[in-house]
Write a protein that binds this DNA or RNA. Sequence first.
DNA 1: ATATTCCCCTGGAAGC
DNA 2: TGCTTCCAGGGGAATA
Length: 277
Amino acid sequence: MPELPEVETVCRALRPHLLGARIRDVAVHAPKLRRRLDPEALRRACAGRTVRDLRRRAKYLVLELDDRHALILHLGMTGEFRVVPEETPLEKHARVVWTLDGGRSWRFLDPRMFGEVTVCRLPAAGADPAELGRLGVEPLSPAFSGDILWTLTRGRQTPVKTLLMQQQHLAGVGNIYASEACFRAGIRPQRPAGRLTRAGCARLAAEVRTVLSEAIRAGGTTISDFRSVDGSEGRFNANLQAYGRDGEPCRRCGAAHRIRRLVLAGRSTFYCPHCQT
DNA sequence: ATATTCCCCTGGAAGC
DNA sequence: TGCTTCCAGGGGAATA
């Protein structure tokens, strides 16, 4: 569930709790998330070390510890982070629990276990781990533009909405914001990516940037599971124009046309047949 | 190489 | 009420 704006929201909320904190110990309560967890390797990476930085890359978080030790964290579909007093009873879906100096407990909860906690080494302080090297451009960085999107889409038959979600091309956009960006740009999600015009690429790139920025300002979107570190929900839901509105009137052209749902690459997709061409 | 399909897993909602 | 089916924001492996 969590896409770039939700992960950014969690990152900002976690930083005050974790930056400068010393990790006393870590306990693994789930044998396997998306990848197998090695409790001993996790303990060796964390115990006794101090959190030097927490940053987002695409839908991942990178937790940097001393001496280029780091953790790669991913929320999957249903992951949540909490920081609570140590004595708080263990939640049903607590999968990994870090104990911090000062009697606090930092917990990763994840019912579906699609999330990820991976130990890694950084090539340099502040750098991305090699494990994230296959990710494409950050949509909110200056490097992302209509020109880049033009280059990425040439010769591709993949529906444009599906391409927006391919992390090796554009890193951070997921199923909700891909539909929303296409709606705002007036482009049908099923259009073959290679058939975008230059003007269409410029519009779409701008709308990707805008919708992600607005969603970050609203603390993300909560469909059912997403919660920030204090348990609060995202406030962007009311701003969704297309996602989840199958059969409801288009908010741009009015009641004459209704939002339709179709499936692209196995994912629900929403668009207005009148406003998007 | 490129583009779908399937699968990992649990829980909530909808249908009968 | 209770059982069954479908669906879900992600990502990667396995297929055509």
